[in-house]
């Protein structure tokens, strides 16, 4: 009898039992703390991870801590990555899987100053184009390939200063980040020309949640709960932007990153545009988006062989249960 009662209580307290022995997860976003990752910080601060029986440690990302490397060296359990980068890494042999897709549309833009005379993609021929030298460079390169643009590629780190100083004519930027930095360096939208990748058959969604297949298989349920809790975090952030921004700013200050509210606010709003494409959260990587991305990468020689969708998102079906 006593045993039966204990069993009932055990079942009723199912979720809270997770809190008793939380599952430890270490997570790194692919960049320094900013509103691009608001959902995770909010999920952590609002106790959503805890609610799902997880003890999540969020490491500050950045150029010194590339996500793929961190996963490979098993310094973290979960990392965010661009879809293209993840596929490239997968092709190179890193056995990672997509356990959740955050971004549902490309936010990449080629931006040029109107004063450069560039009005269409073909005008970029012979110009200096700034593209990130390490990560996130695959799709911009695919764009140039698509339009057969012969231009001087200037590898740049992460700042828009070279563009502002007229060291380059065109620069690949994220709508939610660098584009706004340019606006906030004194350029008005009408002084700029933008080419949204979304409008140029290069709609490759970006941020996704990844982990090693081997890590995932140890406790698929816990990793699926991570995705679920993270999306609850995003949801809360979009509904309570002011609160979410305060949380983000807190993490930025912790990492000594100069922060300003206007920029983070812009970023959070763009993340909402990117994530809630249909007006609601969707944590699933669409097979069409996957196929398009793989096709682009194959075509441009960035990957050599096909990867199966079901294999790449293995465990995905479980994660959405």
């Amino acid at each position: 009898m006593k045993f039966a009662l204990s069993l009932v209580i055990f079942l009723m307290l199912g979720i809270s039992l997770h809190a008793v022995s939380p599952f430890k997860i270490t997570f790194i976003p692919q960049w320094q703390p900013q509103a691009q990752f608001a959902g995770y910080y909010v999920a952590k601060e609002m106790g959503y991870y805890q609610k799902y029986g997880l003890d999540v440690t969020i490491l500050p990302g950045g150029p010194e801590e590339p996500s793929a490397e961190m996963l490979e060296k098993e310094k973290v359990d979960i990392a965010t990555m661009f879809l293209a980068s993840a596929l490239t890494e997968r092709a190179k042999g890193l056995d990672i899987i997509n356990i959740g897709q955050v971004s549902q549309m490309s936010s990449l833009i080629f931006v040029a100053k109107k004063s450069s005379g560039i009005r269409s993609p073909s005008d970029m021929n012979g110009k200096k184009i700034g593209i990130w030298r390490s990560d996130f460079r695959e799709i911009p390169l695919a764009f140039l390939d698509e339009y057969h643009i012969k231009a001087t590629i200037v590898p740049i780190s992460w700042s828009v200063d070279l563009f502002l100083e007229d060291g380059i004519d065109v620069m690949a930027v994220e709508w939610y980040n660098e584009y706004h930095q340019i606006l906030n360096s004194g350029f008005d939208p009408n002084e700029l020309v933008t080419f949204f990748f979304y409008d140029h058959q290069l709609n490759v969604p970006e941020d996704g949640i990844y982990c090693l297949r081997s890590t995932y298989l140890k406790n698929p349920d816990a990793y699926n709960r991570f995705v679920k809790a993270s999306f609850e975090g995003w949801n809360y952030a979009f509904l309570h932007p002011q609160e979410a921004l305060n949380i983000v700013l807190k993490y930025m200050q912790k990492s000594h990153i100069p922060a300003n509210l206007a920029h983070q606010n812009w970023m959070l709003n763009r993340m909402k545009d990117i994530i809630q494409v249909d007006g609601k959260n969707n944590s699933r990587l669409k097979e069409t988006d996957f196929a398009r991305t793989q096709y682009l990468l194959l075509k441009n020689g960035m990957i050599k062989s096909n990867i199966s969708y079901s294999y790449f998102v293995a465990g995905y079906a479980d994660a959405t249960k």
């Binding site: 030298r133 590898p155 100083e165």
Partner: peptide, 19 residues
């Protein structure tokens, strides 16, 4: 080679004060 203090004066071929 890709830091602003290096890359910007290099690209612009002139001495520069950084941000």
């Amino acid at each position: 080679l890709y830091w602003n203090w290096y890359q910007i004066p290099k690209m612009l071929n002139k001495p520069m004060w950084s941000e």
